[in-house]
Design a protein around this nucleic acid. Structure first.
Lengths: 229, 229
DNA sequence: AATTATTAATGTAGATTTTACACTTAAAGT
DNA sequence: ACTTTAAGTGTAAAATCTACATTAATAATT
């Protein structure tokens, strides 16, 4: 019988999380040093096994929480990896998820509780299993996402300057953008509130701070647009 | 211990295949009438369980072959579905795949061997489990794909008219396209060979037949473009 | 043989969008 | 008051996109 449930093989199903962060040094990913075998001591994505009574989205949230203490992070499913020997211990299929978080808001907790560490995407260490591939895949997805949905709310501090937003986009797309063109394209999305307040850290003149207009931002999350940067 | 392999739950991992076809009536999907419980007799995607020694891509190919006799169909992974009760018999996570095939080349075999049937995407029957959702998801993906990669090679006969190609795009995007603008945009991709031969079925005047330029087509498959139709 | 009917094939002007590019301004520091 | 630094701002040319109508080729009909 082709489709008998009882004769079908069962497998371990893992979830691995790619967490992107951003600070003024650029785009970062969060990695942990494995504290168990195999590959103990090597750098790795945060991963764990799906539980019997759990959906994948929840597993991703739980696993992220386990390793970082982070709560309520919206993660997006990326891809299922199934090479036979991708995990040397036992046949394991892994579904990857990615999320964007703000480094500064969470740094303290991270460092305190776990051997987790932020790395620049550009010079991250070699990772276990197929995790390097997952990261590359996630970056591609993030780039694509940037062209159809707003980005930044999750990655930037609540108040941010236009330069910070520009540099975020430059980091994700890994190319230079024209400042004036960028500003007018971003403004045309109408997702920003310009505050009266200025940030005086970065220059003598100071630069205006912005916040995201949450309603407009979320509307744009639902209704994709096309943004050619 | 957080990550012990031995204590982790194992699950059934299924693969479901969304097969798109195209003929002069529009975009179609291929469905089977389940010949086993649960939901025996209802319409369903072609699905099966991943084997222990098999990667997902191969499982998709095997399952498609099992239900249609089709070989060597390139399928693309779509998404992993994991709602707890999505399959009423047993906890099953399903990874969906989609593919594009040419209806005419394969019809005979299909009908002969299985209770498989083509349905217009527009008026397909209600499907079991979460298969409706999978189909909707696949259509969205197909639309997106159409805007960044060439399409048609897998769906159209070897020789086809510009009108057939136009109607394929219209079916996928479910909107009318301006014929002249379409032609010039497609031509700018430089993936077509115009033959000296004409198809005389469709009109008195006859319309030129085209083939895809395989090299150019495959190059464009690798290097995405932007196609605004 | 001439006429009719049908779909194929083709080009352009105006609107919109994108791109490239440089000077002035505000404020702090000296 | 002078210097320094990054912020802020507009436009003209180029490229792309859109809307749109006539002629051409052939088979079928008379």
């Amino acid at each position: 019988m082709l489709n008998s449930y009882s004769s079908a093989d069962k497998v371990l199903l893992a979830v691995d999380c790619i967490i992107f962060g951003f600070d003024n040094e650029g785009l970062k990913i969060l990695l942990i040093k494995r504290d168990f075998e195999p590959e103990k001591g090597k750098w790795s994505l945060m991963g764990g096994f799906l539980k019997r009574d759990e959906v994948l989205d929840d597993a991703a949230i739980r696993i992220l929480n386990t390793y970082t203490g982070l709560n309520d992070i919206y993660m997006e499913q990326l891809y299922a990896y199934s090479e036979i020997d991708r995990d040397p211990v036992e046949r394991t299929i892994s579904v990857s998820y990615y999320a964007l978080i703000n480094i500064e808001n969470h740094n303290a907790e991270l460092i305190k509780n776990y051997h987790a560490q932020w790395f620049s995407v550009a010079d991250a260490p070699n990772l276990i299993f197929d995790h390097n591939e997952m990261v590359q895949h996630a970056i591609r997805r993030l780039r694509y996402r940037t062209s159809i949905k707003p980005i930044g709310f999750e990655l930037l501090p609540e108040k941010f300057t236009m330069r910070q937003l520009l540099e975020l986009y430059e980091a994700i797309l890994s190319k230079e953008l024209d400042k004036r063109n960028f500003i007018s394209k971003i403004n045309s999305l109408e997702i920003l509130n310009k505050l009266d307040e200025k940030d005086m850290q970065s220059s003598r003149k100071g630069s205006y701070l912005y916040t995201f207009n949450k309603e407009k931002y979320e509307e744009k999350l639902l209704n994709d647009f096309v943004l050619n940067l």
